[in-house]
Structures are given as structure tokens and as C-alpha cells.
């Protein structure tokens, strides 16, 4: 029995859940950013799995776009993190709520 697309989709959904849980439940800003990377990575897995199932390479192109967005997001996010840490001396997202309405 070979591995079908559903296996990849289920794995992708599980990885997405784990990443989303990390974004919601963790308080450390660095780990929240890493969990975001996990979610993006699971979406990439779904893209490539659908690409194989359809025999169409559009999914690969979107995966490259998604990696680019992830790289830009990490660069900006980490720059903000360094800036915030030098001002506030903390990475606790419960303390950093100056924008809360």
C-alpha cells in the first residue's frame, strides 16, 4: 500500500494545529515566531502534496513564494523583537500590550 495524499494532508493539519497552539499558548515572543514558521511549513507541505496529486507544478511555485514571504516575515519580526527587547527588557507578550485597545 502506497502513501496517498490524505496522509500528507493529515500530517499537514496536525503540524498546523501544533503551530497554532504554540502561537496562542506560548508567552515567549521568539517561540511564537517559531510556531508561525511551523504553520507556514505545514501549509507548504499541503501545497506540495496537492501539486503531486494533480501532476501540476503550480504548487511548487506557490511554495517558493511562501518561502519568500516567510523569510521576509522572519527578518522583520526579529528586527522588531530586537528593538522591543532593547526598549522594554522583556519578551513576555503579556507585558508588551501597549497597543491594546
Amino acid at each position: 500500500m502506497s502513501v496517498s495524499i490524505e496522509h500528507y494532508l493529515i500530517l499537514s493539519a496536525i503540524l498546523f494545529v501544533v503551530g497554532a497552539y504554540g502561537v496562542i499558548a506560548r508567552k515567549n515572543l521568539i517561540i511564537v515566531l517559531m510556531s508561525l514558521e511551523l504553520m507556514l511549513n505545514s501549509a507548504n507541505l499541503a501545497f506540495v502534496a496537492f501539486s503531486k496529486a494533480l501532476g501540476d507544478m503550480t504548487g511548487h511555485v506557490f511554495m517558493i513564494m511562501s518561502i519568500t514571504v516567510a523569510a521576509a516575515e522572519v527578518a522583520v519580526g526579529l528586527a522588531l523583537l530586537v528593538s522591543v527587547y532593547s526598549h522594554r527588557e522583556t519578551l513576555d507578550i503579556d507585558v508588551l500590550k501597549i497597543l491594546k485597545g
Binding site: S4, E6, L9, I10, A53, G55
Partner: peptide, 12 residues
């Protein structure tokens, strides 16, 4: 998953 079940029948 429903979409995937439909897709797995398509031969590339």
C-alpha cells in the same frame, strides 16, 4: 480531506 479523496483517483 474530501477534496483529497476526489484527487487521489486522478492519475497524473
Amino acid at each position: 480531506f474530501k477534496k483529497g479523496l476526489l484527487l487521489s483517483n486522478i492519475g497524473a
